[in-house]
Amino acid sequence: MSKFTRTQKILMGVIAFFIMFGAITKSMQNGNLIAKLGYDGFTMLNYALISHPAELVKNWMGDLAQLWYVQEENDELREELSKQKKYRLENEQLKRELAEKNALLDMIDRNAQYEPISANVIKRDADGWNALITIDVGESDGIQADMAVVSADGMIGKVQDVNYKTSTVKLLTSEDRSERVSVRVSISDTESAEGILEYYDEAKGLFLIRLFTQNENVTKGMQVTTSGLGGLYPSGLSIGEIASVEEMDNQMGKTVFVTPAAKFDSFLYVAVLNDTEAN
């Protein structure tokens, strides 16, 4: 009677076969052939039947768990997106303000002799759009009536009323023609023409200036500044650029239309010039 059962004989045979075959192939070439073939085949089968499905299930469970957060994330992103337009507009506004402030600083540097006082425009009357603005400096800041007020681009008007902390400024575009501005047209370095800023033509959007001279050299594109004559405004403040020249009928002199240097439709930051001689 055999010492071993049938199952034991089968197992022993299998073990012996694999050990011998492995030993032979290992001695014949680098590595174990059975191990290589078996490992490759089993690994691929294992991956295809076990590992890959397990990974798919794991990813699916992960995605399912993530769904709970997707709604929350969507809401946050939607809110961010709705704010993005607002941020863009705010950014553009801030850029404009920054550019205006930088230009005003340059202007202040150019007119440092007049001890400019910076101010913010805090009110504009919607009805009298071209008449009055209110700035946030007043008597406590050294403001006095009739001081010239400039923006970054040029002169805009003069101080009309002074309160303790605020002041009102009458713009050059006002319809009030009681106080006129003496101006000078720079023809060349040695030649200029004097005149008076009569009024602001709303229809054309231009200043009308009457020159006291028939000088033929006054042409389009020349710069117009305050002359300082009359004692109201300091000299050298930019008024604008000549847009067109007209002869006056039956009168001496010329009429020029000047494009304002300052933009009267929108400015936030101004400077009040303290010209003690003019005041």
Partner: peptide, 8 residues
């Protein structure tokens, strides 16, 4: 043969 790729 199928997991560790070693011999014995």
């Amino acid at each position: 043969f199928f997991y560790a790729n070693t011999y014995l």
